[in-house]
């Protein structure tokens, strides 16, 4: 065991495999959770029929999706059409590698963990664009273009918001930031940290293509955006990667701003991390089922007129704070 943990390659391989399996199982459960919560918000029950409390519903859905024929449109770019779903899920899951679930449970303790996570999160716009392009469908194309525009725009305030904990902690390593928070209090507890956390969550919603920023998908306008032509398992992978991305974003928010695995009452750190992630995901879901959607130009205006200047200001304040502290 110590051999495995000490060799970074083996360590990464084992943890990666475990992480992917756990995350995918979690994603399945999370869809159930979201549907149940949405049902409660909308004064209905949500899934109830399959298994106790409808818990087995995601499995039934997955089986159904796998049974279906995966149809590739006649004029689609077959290779890219096939490539887009695996790319999406790969990029979404790759982000999870640097998330510290406790002091030891972590796939790769990179020195540039934050950068790595943000980079992969930003890359997610591209498989979506590939899907939109390859589908040979105007709705898909429009959705893909919107995704790229939105992904690139929101990347900027997102990175700047992440710079605040980085500046305060003085490290780019996720584990380092969590350890800084264990030592000197959660970042969310400071005013600048709280503002940055809120900003990061907002931009993460946009990056993750969630309401009120789900312009690329926009069912009422673009049918299903880039995934219009996808069905069966291809569509399921897109859906799963969207959930995976949401969960991982929630985990990053917990790690960067909410103290990560830090907690009280001697509870296991892993439990704290999972609880915080769940809490952030709850907020994300709640927002999704309560808000309407922005228009694309309003979305851009929000980003460039308010979020980017706000994020700049926060970075400035954090820098001053650090320099005063010495």
């Amino acid at each position: 065991m110590t051999f495995v943990l000490s060799n970074p390659w083996l360590h990464g391989l084992v943890f990666g495999a475990v992480l992917v399996s756990v995350l995918m199982a979690l994603v399945a459960f999370i869809t159930w959770f979201e549907r149940k919560l949405a049902g409660r918000i909308q004064s209905r029950l949500g899934p109830t029929m399959v298994g106790p409390f409808g818990l087995l519903q995601p499995i039934a859905d997955a089986v159904k999706a796998m049974q279906k024929d995966f149809i590739v449109p006649k004029d689609a770019d077959r290779f890219l059409f096939w490539l887009a779903p695996p790319l999406t899920i790969a990029f979404a899951l790759a982000t999870a590698a640097v998330i510290p679930f406790s002091k030891d449970v972590l796939a790769a303790n990179l020195d540039v963990g934050v950068l790595y996570a943000l980079a992969f999160s930003g890359l997610l716009a591209f498989p979506t664009w590939v899907a939109g392009w390859a589908s040979n469908n105007k709705y898909a194309l429009l959705g893909g273009m919107r995704m790229v525009a939105q992904g690139i725009s929101y990347e900027i305030p997102m990175v700047m918001a992440a710079l605040v904990p980085v500046t305060l902690a003085g490290t780019l390593s996720m584990q380092g930031i969590v350890e800084y928070q264990v030592a000197s209090g959660w970042i969310i507890a400071t005013p600048v940290g709280a503002a940055a956390g809120l900003l990061f969550l907002t931009t993460a919603l946009a990056e993750g293509n969630r309401i009120p920023f789900d312009i690329p998908e926009a069912e009422s306008e673009l049918v299903a955006g880039p995934t219009t032509e996808y069905n069966a398992i291809g569509w399921s992978i897109f859906a799963a990667s969207e959930y995976a991305h949401s969960v991982i974003t929630a985990a990053i928010v917990s790690a960067l701003f909410l103290g990560g695995w830090d907690g009280w009452w001697n509870l296991p750190p892993l439990l704290w991390m999972v609880a915080k992630t769940g809490f952030v995901f709850l907020i994300v879901t709640w927002v999704r089922w309560s808000l309407l959607r922005f228009r694309s130009d309003q979305l851009m205006a929000l980003c460039w007129k308010y979020l980017v200047p706000g994020a700049l200001l926060l970075v400035l304040i954090a820098g001053i704070q650090v320099s005063v502290r010495g």
Partner: peptide, 12 residues
């Protein structure tokens, strides 16, 4: 629903 999408606040 037209404003908020079939999977979001509009459906609520």
């Amino acid at each position: 629903m037209d404003l908020g999408g079939a999977l979001g606040g509009g459906t609520s």
